[in-house]
């Protein structure tokens, strides 16, 4: 392997992304070639420096936009249900209004008819009481004598 080829493969060599055979050849070349060996050291330093970088401290809520989106969706759904309910109420109202306008007096005479059809339970009771009162008054004028049956 020549210098050009080795230098092209150095990063892959450091990342252990080469075959065992390629690794062996590069190792052999680096042992004998100072410029390539120096480049290898410098690239190693770059790699190590990047690996050693510390992550920034976590600050703020990363889900802030997701929360806002979810709240928006929830609000939208609530609004949608409110809208549906309002529409249903309007339809029911329209239906009632239409039926009232189409049959404006339908409820008046029918109620009167029903009242007529109702039986007068009081009438029967009234005649019974009148009859009993009559019987009582008749009984009061007849003396109760022993041995004589009371006849009507």
């Amino acid at each position: 392997m020549n210098c050009h080829r080795v230098q092209k493969l150095l990063s892959s060599y450091l990342d252990q992304e080469l075959s065992a055979e390629e690794r062996r050849e590069i190792r052999k070349h680096l042992f004998a070639c100072a410029p390539c060996s120096r480049l290898c050291d410098e690239l190693t330093l770059i790699k190590d420096s990047l690996e050693g970088l510390e992550p920034p401290a976590i600050g703020g809520d990363f889900l802030r936009k997701v929360h806002l989106y979810r709240e928006g969706r929830l609000l939208q759904e609530t609004f949608l249900w409110g809208k549906r309910l309002a529409m249903a109420a309007v339809w029911i109202l329209l239906f009632l209004l239409t039926s009232f306008l189409l049959f404006p007096n339908s409820s008046g005479p029918e109620l009167a008819k029903k009242e007529e059809q109702l039986p007068d339970y009081g009438a029967r009771e009234r005649t019974t009481l009148q009859q009993e009162a009559k019987e009582e008054s008749t009984r009061l004028f007849l003396p109760r004598l022993p041995g004589i049956p009371v006849s009507r």
Binding site: L53, P56, I58, K65
Partner: peptide, 27 residues
């Protein structure tokens, strides 16, 4: 969130941009 924030920060080079980018990406 930690490695993702680190990734966003190294990509943008700015803490505020990284936070904004990550919020957007999570959404």
């Amino acid at each position: 969130e930690k490695p993702l924030y680190h990734f966003a920060y190294r990509l943008t080079g700015d803490i505020n941009d990284a936070q904004d980018l990550l919020q957007e990406a999570f959404l």
